[in-house]
């Protein structure tokens, strides 16, 4: 475990222990299941945005992509009665395509990532609302819906995306399995493939990477595709978890949670730094803070304040740690 991952892990343990001491119901199996479930959902998005942040970019459209994927999925399965497998494949492709468009606009048309994805945020949210007349709808069809004939299959999907697997007396939420697979794949990609190395290189110094023969444009496009794909998968998970999708609200602000988790988890917005494990732990810290606030009965009005302070402290501590270790490395270098 790298040093900065160790710091965030310590934070996780600290909040965990404090809450557990103050409220004995906190460590109940039921609460742990919920915590794992929500952490997994948000961590999937955060992993996606970590890729983009490592390249030195940003993606503000994640929340809207989550919303759009959830809406389109529900619309296709419930209202249009389209085969659920086709609906899932379509929505996943759609999210990948969104990432591709972002990447092309950023690399080929040379528009700033902030602008491209901000416009994306607005456009996909609108699309969701327009498609559904802004009516909330769920992926699981009710009697009278066209998709009702596929109900059995959809219920199976519901189990896959938002079910629980009994392991003894513990019910493991299935989103955790998604996170496990995605997290391991992402970590392998970043640390064990040449493309992962290229992403870090170009995030640290895009020109330097390009002069070394790396096709930096293609690598950036890949990062944006991965980011939107993860948002799309998160969209599926959220749709099944919430059972009802509100076109105007589902996923709203989630990009900020994702970016916050990525930054807290050790990604630098300057690019070139980041660890998947750190991001997953940071996403868990954020969910844990929400859970603790409820468990300790702190006013919900204080949530954002507490979250903001924790993230700020985490990042400040990280920055101190880094300059400290940089100084030590420099001092070491000067010794003969």
């Amino acid at each position: 475990m790298k040093k900065n991952t160790l710091g965030i892990f310590g934070l996780l343990i600290a909040i965990f222990v404090v809450t557990a001491v103050l409220n004995d119901k906190f460590i109940s199996a039921y609460n742990m299941q919920n915590l794992i479930k929500w952490s997994s959902l948000y961590a999937v998005m955060s992993i996606g945005v970590a890729f983009v942040i490592i390249t030195g970019g940003i993606d503000l459209s994640i929340g809207s992509v989550v919303g759009l994927v959830a809406v389109v999925l529900a619309y296709m399965m419930k209202v249009k009665g389209i085969n659920p497998s086709a609906a899932i494949i379509t929505t996943i492709c759609m999210s990948g395509l969104i990432g591709l468009v972002h990447g092309l606009l950023i690399t080929k048309a040379k528009i700033q990532p902030f602008v491209v994805t901000l416009c994306g945020l607005l456009i996909y949210r609108s699309l969701s609302r327009w498609l559904t007349d802004n009516q909330s709808l769920g992926p699981v069809p009710l009697e009278g819906d066209k998709g009702y004939t596929n109900l059995e299959f959809i219920n199976q999907l519901d189990f896959i995306f938002s079910g629980k697997i009994a392991i003894g007396s513990f019910n493991l939420p299935t989103p955790f399995l998604f996170l496990l697979v995605i997290g391991i794949t992402a970590a392998l990609f970043l640390n064990r493939t040449i493309w992962g190395r290229y992403l870090f290189a170009l995030g640290n110094n895009e020109d330097g990477a390009r002069y070394s023969g790396i096709n930096t444009d293609n690598m950036k496009i890949i990062a944006y595709v991965i980011c939107s794909l993860m948002a799309g998968i998160a969209g599926l998970l959220f749709a099944f978890e919430l059972d009802s999708v509100q076109p105007a609200q589902t996923g709203e602000f989630y990009e900020l949670y994702a970016i916050a988790a990525a930054v807290l988890g050790g990604c630098s917005l300057r690019g070139g730094e980041g660890s998947i494990l750190g991001v997953i732990i940071a996403a868990a810290v954020i969910r844990l803070i929400y859970n603790s606030i409820n468990m300790l009965g702190i006013s919900t009005h204080l949530e954002f304040g507490i979250l903001g302070i924790v993230i700020l402290l985490g990042v400040v501590a990280d920055e101190f740690l880094k300059s400290y270790s940089a100084k030590r490395a420099a001092a070491k270098q000067q010794e003969p």
Binding site: N204, N205, G208, S212, G213, I214, E273
Partner: peptide, 20 residues
């Protein structure tokens, strides 16, 4: 600015072009 990726290690820089 163009020759190296300064925050990366000596090894990573030396191998950057031949990874492929």
């Amino acid at each position: 600015l163009h020759g190296l990726v300064l925050p990366m290690t000596v090894g990573e820089n030396a191998s950057l072009a031949s990874l492929k």
